[in-house]
Simulated assay, not measured.
Amino acid sequence: MNKTYTLITGASSGLGSAFALCCARLKMNLILIALPGSAIKRTGEELRRLYGVEVHIFEFDLTSNEAFETHVGIIKASFAVNFLINNAGMGGTVPMLDCSPQVIDKIIRLNISCTALLTRELLPQLLRHEKSYVLNIASMAAFSPIAYKTVYPASKAFVSSFSLGLREEMQHEGLSVSVACPGPIMTNSNTSQRILLQGYKGRLGLVSTMDLANRIVRQTLAGRAVIVPGWWNRMNQKLMGIIPSTIKVRLISGVIKRELQLTH
């Protein structure tokens, strides 16, 4: 296997789609994973045409054990992956009592289990290369508990901890592991509405999705451990490291509570 591939989960829209475009521009062959019924095939065709790279599409639900085993087995047998981008994830803003057990389970499966399991499944392949990379997408939410989101920031704190632990474990193996903690991203109309409701402060951390992808990929390839794009987000990260947890969670949760009240 002389050709190498970059595998991107959640590649059909938002940051995942921007990662696909960014990596295609860098002449990386791609394996794109997305849910069935997305526009991923059209994206793949465009990337092939514009950049002359190989693009292989897999449409399945990562949280389905059977689909995961089948498709990941095919990928492992067919492609030499040297760059894994665990981008797929989900969250939501809802009081805990209104959040169904099914949604809680889905967040934990996708954000935590799939990130850890896909990384573990591809680890032997990644280590065959002289230099390889894993990029896990966490969030600014990883730096503090947040009421009315509750499970989401906890899952992203796992992603951050998992990434840094694995990075240390693999430091002499030629595998560089990075975790990115982006702030608000205007990926869809619902998310955009929530960001705009936060006013000036909500918009301060915004970086365009394409710019965000470029920055994150560039810093991953440079071997950066923790990537926090945008000066406002980096300042927030420093502040959150200073403020006591009980005060921090109250301040952030207050913003989310007001946002909920405005949308209901």
Rank of each mutant, 00 (worst) to 15 (best):
N233M: 07
A157M: 05
K76A: 13
A213H: 07
C99Y: 10
N111E: 06
A225D: 11
P36N: 13
L196A: 13
G199P: 06
F83M: 13
T187S: 15
V226R: 13
L21H: 11
C22Y: 04
V134N: 05
Y152Q: 00
N111F: 02
R42H: 09
S144I: 07
A67M: 09
V53S: 08
G174K: 01
R224V: 10
P124S: 09
G183Q: 01
N65V: 10
A157L: 07
K106E: 09
I33G: 01
R258Q: 12
R25L: 08
V226H: 09
M28I: 05
F58V: 08
S253P: 00
E169N: 08
A180E: 03
E45K: 14
P153I: 01
A11M: 02
S12Y: 02
S192L: 10
I107D: 04
E59M: 09
L204K: 15
T150K: 01
G174L: 04
M170Q: 15
S17L: 13
L30V: 07
G89D: 00
A142P: 06
K201Y: 12
Y152L: 05
S139Q: 02
H172D: 14
L175S: 07
N190I: 11
Q171F: 13
N136D: 04
T263S: 14
T263K: 15
F79I: 04
E66F: 10
L26Y: 01
R109E: 15
A67Q: 13
A34K: 06
C114V: 00
T6M: 07
G89R: 08
V103Y: 11
A67N: 11
P184I: 01
T119L: 07
D61V: 08
H172L: 13
T191I: 12
R194P: 05
Q237Y: 14
R203Y: 05
R215V: 14
D61E: 14
G10Q: 03
A180V: 06
T70H: 14
L164Y: 07
K27A: 09
A39Y: 08
L7K: 03
I247D: 02
E130C: 10
S245M: 12
I112E: 09
S113I: 15
G89M: 03
A20E: 05
I185C: 07
V151L: 01
M96L: 15
S189D: 15
M140S: 05
D211V: 13
S192Q: 13
F58M: 05
L118F: 07
A157S: 15
I40L: 14
